[in-house]
Every structure is written in C-alpha cells, then in structure tokens.
Design a protein around this nucleic acid. Structure first.
Lengths: 160, 160
DNA sequence: GTTCGGATACTCGGATAGCACTTGTCCGAGTGGGGGTGG
DNA sequence: CCACCCCCACTCGGACAAGTGCTATCCGAGTATCCGAAC
C-alpha cells in the first residue's frame, strides 16, 4: 500500500511543464529536480504511453503536455505511473473451504470487496478532482507567481 | 499501490470471529478459508499486535475479537496489516535542484503533497466508516443469516 | 544566393541488472488441560 | 473418592528463506538540425 516514488516526480514535472511551449528534454527535468535522469525518463515514458504528454524526438526534442493543464487530473498521472488495475483484488474466499458458497450465490461482489471498492472510488474521486491547473494555482497562491515563472524561464534556458 | 493480499483474509477472519465466544485457533481459520495456515497466522499476529484481537495460548487457545464488532473498522484491520505509515512520502522536491526553495518557504506541505494527503484521508474515511458489524449486517441481508451462523457453528466444531 | 544532401548530435524507447518488500515457511517459548498418583 | 502434581499436546510468537515487483541503468532506434557543397 505504498505509492511508487516516481509518482511524485511525474506530478512535479507536469506542473513544471505548464506554460512551456517548446519541448523539454527529460535530462533538463531531471536536473531541475535533482533526481536520477534515466529513472525519470522511464516515468516520462509512462506518461507518454498514457497520452498525457507528447514526446518529440530529434535534436530539439523533449516532452510537452498533450492536453490543457486543467484537463489533466492527478489521478491520470497516478494511474499512468502505477497502472490502472485496482488496488484490491478479491480472491473470492467465499467460494473456498468446507463452507464454500455456490457460484450462483456470488453474483454480486462480497461485502468486503464492496467496502474496499468504495474506498478506492473515494480515493480516485479525490485525485480526479484536482487537476494540474489547480496545483499551479495553489502554488501561485501560496508562494507567489514568480516561483513557477522562474521555473519556466529556467526550463527555456537551463544552466548546464 | 497494491494492497497486501493478507488484508482480505484478515477482514474475512474478523467477520467470521463475530459471535463466537471461545478462542478459535489460526489453523481452524485457515481451513475455513482454505488458505496457508502459517501465513494467515502471521496476519493474525499483526491483528493481535494492533490490539484488534486477543490471543490466548494453551491447549484450547486461539483468537477472539478484543472489542465489539461495531467498534472495529475496516481501516483498523488494514492499518494493522499494512502498517500505519502514509502511502505517499513527500521527498521535498522543492528544496532540491538549482531553483531550490529555502526551508522557511516550505513551512507548509507542498501542493502535491496536500492533494495526495487529501485523497488518502478520503480513502481512510471511507474505510473508517465501515465496521465489522456493518459487514456482518450486509452479509446477513444479502445471503441470509444462516450463512454466518453456519460459519460460527463450524468454527465451534470444525471438521478435521 | 539558394537549395539539396548527408553527417551529426541529440532525443526518446525498450530491454536489462540490482535491490527491497511481500509472500510463504519453519521451529522454539509458553500455557492450559488431562491423566496418574498419593492421601 | 478427592486433591495435587507432572507430563503433554496444543497454541502463539518471532526468526528465517523464496518470489515478485519497484528502483536504477544502459545501449540502440529515430529524427530535427547544422554544415557543406553543388547549382
């Protein structure tokens, strides 16, 4: 029940990518956050595979957000990195053992399964309600708009 | 982001333990659910360590619920098995890299951290709102009260 | 001066090792019960 | 017949391996750019 560490990096990168028009290479994003270049590249690949960012190859290549920031939710990023399979897998304990229930008695999910499913739905709904644009607005409100503008400027011409 | 498989077993065992007065050994619970005896014993140990079930040693020993079923939430069981540490660990990316923020600018949690925290709180709240007694009531309503009564009878005198 | 071509350097992408955690298992410590023995 | 004591079988508890997925890394495929040469 632990989130992959790459999720944090991916979300931060999506926030940093807002407002930039030219592609940003993974190496630049890695230097910005001071993290492993190759590993962050892997996370960006996952984002590209999920269609959240658009990757352009070549000399001036890199990553750009594929959609407006207000249409990319944090849930999209988490699912892109972690995978879309649910966190709880019901093994149908009911149908095992000496008091096994018949399959026609198990047409609907068991009570335990439903409780877990409801909790995961709540979790997903909370993450779905926060978009990358919301995060940008929050950062601007908390720390001032110059923080993210400085990030965008650095991404445009990074220091080697 | 995957729950431990033992969580399912632990919840089912807690449901099965409702209404029984004499201690039930881990081996009996394992046979009821047709799962690995030794591994389920490990999960029951975690429940005992968390104070959810009371363990009695000796010849007629086993496990009993330590509290009324309506005061044991599914969240309690999940936390007992998975551990209480939060699923998301913020590595303070803000304070790293060439544009690192100063520590006094990071007095409150960053926007990403707060979004993840809110989602986890929603998840926990959903699980906290479901007690073992609620699960029992749900099973009784769905499949009839005889299902759980048969389970209790089998736990009292199990077939070897 | 303009245009075409190729070499180049830089990018992403998937395939590849290392490590931590979950899964699964085992044996020892402790305890209540049952049977034997003595009164 | 009853009470006491010892042995035992049964239980939990923590310590010990194996498998699986996350972490981290590398090298190859692909492409826009830049430079040079030809027209």
């Amino acid at each position: 029940m632990k989130l992959s560490g790459g999720v944090e990096w991916a979300v931060h990168c999506c926030v940093a990518l807002t407002g930039v028009t030219e592609p940003v290479p993974a190496a630049t994003l890695a230097r910005l956050n001071d993290v492993s270049m190759t590993y962050l590249a892997k996370q960006m690949q996952s984002l590209a595979r999920a269609g959240l960012v658009h990757s352009v190859q070549g000399k001036a290549g890199g990553y750009v957000l594929a959609r407006p920031a207000d249409s990319i939710s944090v849930l999209d990023i988490v699912l892109a990195i972690e995978g879309t399979e649910p966190q709880f897998t019901c093994t149908e304990v009911r149908q095992r053992g000496p008091l096994a229930a018949s399959p026609e008695q198990c047409l609907q999910a068991c009570a335990v399964h439903r409780a877990m499913l409801a909790a995961e739905q709540a979790w997903r709904a909370s993450l779905r309600g926060v978009s990358v644009a919301d995060l940008v607005a929050t950062v601007d409100r908390d720390s001032g708009p110059d923080v993210l503008s400085r990030v965008r400027g650095w991404l445009a011409s990074p220091t080697p």
